[in-house]
Design a protein around this nucleic acid. Structure first.
Lengths: 158, 158
DNA sequence: AGAATTATCTAACCATGTAAACTACCTTGG
DNA sequence: CCAAGGTAGTTTACATGGTTAGATAATTCT
């Protein structure tokens, strides 16, 4: 190796300082996003609701894998959504252990309502960026997605 | 098409779907980063340790503002770092209410150790990206930083 | 049938955010 | 100069949402 502070293979193009900034920024941004609370539902619940909406009917296990968390975590959140009448859980007719989870009508309504209000929040902050900055974000989006793709061995969850 | 689903001012260039993906991705990436635990210290403690290192000597209030959390949260984390002998707290000679917080020698050592090990973790995952993807990330980094800059009114913390 | 596996839930724990109330100190106006 | 009010920080009590370990029930395998 010929570089002054090589951190690893591809890191010829990324400095130690940039690495640190990346960590800190992504960590903090995540916290800000998870904590800003448009409405009644917390981030975890909203994320789960959307996940169900995208994959319904689905199972607790699939949701856990999709969210990148452990099943007990999903179970609890699911119970909350159940109590709120936003989702329904039915026994799988084929496999008696599993359950089929899907949105209720109220859940569908809540989903679109949230979609709108969440967008409002994010949009407001994206509004502070210039058009160029926004484009940079969009281009980087797939990379960010890849970075946190559970299929890429990142999560110890599975 | 010009813009089928405009969400707000600058959003001519960002679709509703991209907005959602951005939210979800940043939220999840944040969680992954905050939970991966190279070592003994949690994300919050590491972040605080670095913050102190950057600004020392500093005060609890400044740290809270900097971290974008409330003072009680800082107090507790600070106590942990105190117990671990990584930081020290001295009464401010001028203002008896405030305290001056700074790293101990052990704190400084821990800081550089962490810097290295954290980098290793992130680097490993960045290694899965191509050189081009990495460059996209780097270019987008300042934008992400701006997005979560507390000076930009995002945090309700102040 | 009996054993192993699988899907899920329960229970207990931990970390870390919050708001509200309290303490101690500083500052200032009568 | 001292009482009133503001400010820094802590304590307390609570909520959320992650974890692991262990229980339960249904399925699958031999």
């Amino acid at each position: 190796m010929s570089n002054p502070t090589p951190v690893s293979r591809t890191s010829e193009s990324i400095s130690r300082e940039e690495l640190t900034r990346l960590r800190m920024t992504l960590g903090r941004l995540g916290r800000v996003l998870r904590q800003q609370n448009d409405d009644g539902l917390s981030y975890a619940l909203i994320s789960l609701l959307f996940s169900i909406g995208r994959n319904q009917p689905t199972t607790a296990g699939e949701l856990a894998a999709g969210e990148g968390v452990t099943p007990p975590s999903v179970t609890r959140s699911l119970n909350r959504l159940l109590e709120l009448g936003l989702v329904k859980r039915e026994r799988d007719p084929v496999d008696g252990r599993a359950s089929r989870i899907s949105l209720t009508a109220a859940g569908v309504a809540e989903r679109s309502r949230l979609l709108r209000s969440r967008e409002v929040w994010l949009s407001e902050h994206l509004d502070r960026l210039t058009r160029e900055e926004l484009d940079l974000l969009l281009v980087a989006l797939p990379v960010l997605e890849r970075l946190c793709d559970p299929e890429l061995d990142i999560t110890p969850g599975d």
